[in-house]
Amino acid sequence: MRNKLTEMGKKQLAFYFDSSSCSGCKTCQVACKDKHDSGEGILWRRVYEAAGGDWVKDGNAWVPNVYSYYISMACNHCVEPLCLYSCPNNAIVKNDDGIVLIEKDRCMGCRYCEWNCPYGALQFDKSQGVMTKCTFCDDYLAEGKKPSCITACPMRVLDIGELEELEKEHGKSNEIFPMPRAHYTQPAIVVKPHRDARMAENVEMKIDNLEEIKNEQ
């Protein structure tokens, strides 16, 4: 099954995200909520605020040793989608564009996929009793438009493309903190890192805004 899904030559759409200029304004998050009418607590796209470091008193002065950047993330429509593999009812599919989708009428709401996704992309909708996730705005793609989050961005730091093309242009960059190691699922995303992202190796970085991103349901 795994080989069939990822056979060579198949299209793999991917997100591009320029973290170096992301302001964390979350317009993408709300554009997504508005388009998909996802309820409170459901964040198909969400923005992680990474922060770390400390302050040093130097005489009368305060020296900041503080680092921060934002990671806007939806579903990464992984090349190896663990969510799909874990679904006991085959309710998750990967389409010809490489987009990972949930077939709602097959979903039992068991939430196994939620446990398996290392990105928190799969989110339970209590009112419907099913899992939900980013669809890459496949309806917009069919109309020749880009996903809602992309065209929303006031800083123009989001885009889409073919994974291979994006990696050719920007290099492979898909495990910026707080993203997990990429080898588990091979996420279809290319992140241009903020300069502070390299500090994650030297200082303890944490997600500063956990309360803003957890799926409440």
């Binding site: 979350k26 554009a31 508005d34 809602s148 065209t151 006031p154 123009r156």
Partner: peptide, 27 residues
């Protein structure tokens, strides 16, 4: 549904006027 400025060009001389989170939440 609320989207934002979709004028075809987004040149610096007359960039798209993309609404922020406040406008996009207006519903």
């Amino acid at each position: 549904r609320i989207e934002t400025d979709d004028r075809p060009t987004d040149d610096i001389s007359d960039p798209q006027l993309r609404a922020c989170i406040r406008g996009r939440s207006y519903r």
